[in-house]
């Protein structure tokens, strides 16, 4: 997808307006997954705004967001970074053959106590 179109699509499906961001870093200050990520919530916001989506799409950080919505809840400007991360993740897994998680990988990941909820959620987050 062409860069500008992609940015527009990401902003549309996420409903995020990155220009509301005042770069305070509270999202990244509160993110429980910060240390697991290469790019952090506030960087998702500024990098999408700056058209650097390719870097984000190639980053494993996409699959480290827990969608816990702490950044959304605590942002002083109502920016909702988690929604933007989700949109970038979708931009990747909606491409042909780009499933992050494939069904044949699953049996090894399971144990008998694992709730279905985890399985369904992970599949829907990471594969289509």
């Amino acid at each position: 997808m062409e860069q500008n179109n992609l940015k527009e699509t990401l902003l549309r499906i996420s409903g995020v307006n990155p220009r509301k961001c005042m770069k305070c870093g509270k999202c990244s200050g509160t993110c429980p997954s910060y240390d697991e990520m290469e790019y952090h919530p506030h960087e998702f916001v500024s990098m999408v705004e700056n058209g650097e989506t390719e870097k984000l799409m190639a980053s494993p950080s996409l699959y480290r967001c827990l969608t816990c919505f702490a950044c959304v809840e605590r942002c002083p400007r109502g920016v909702q970074p988690a929604k933007l991360i989700e949109a970038v993740r979708l931009a990747v897994i909606r491409q042909q053959g780009m499933n992050h998680l494939k069904p044949d990988q699953l049996p090894d990941m399971l144990d008998e106590d694992m709730p279905q909820q985890a399985l369904v959620s992970a599949m829907r987050k990471f594969a289509k």
Binding site: S33, M114, A122
Partner: peptide, 10 residues
């Protein structure tokens, strides 16, 4: 605060 959620799989 989050428990780690569906990351339990991966």
């Amino acid at each position: 605060e989050c428990c780690g959620s569906y990351m339990a799989l991966e």
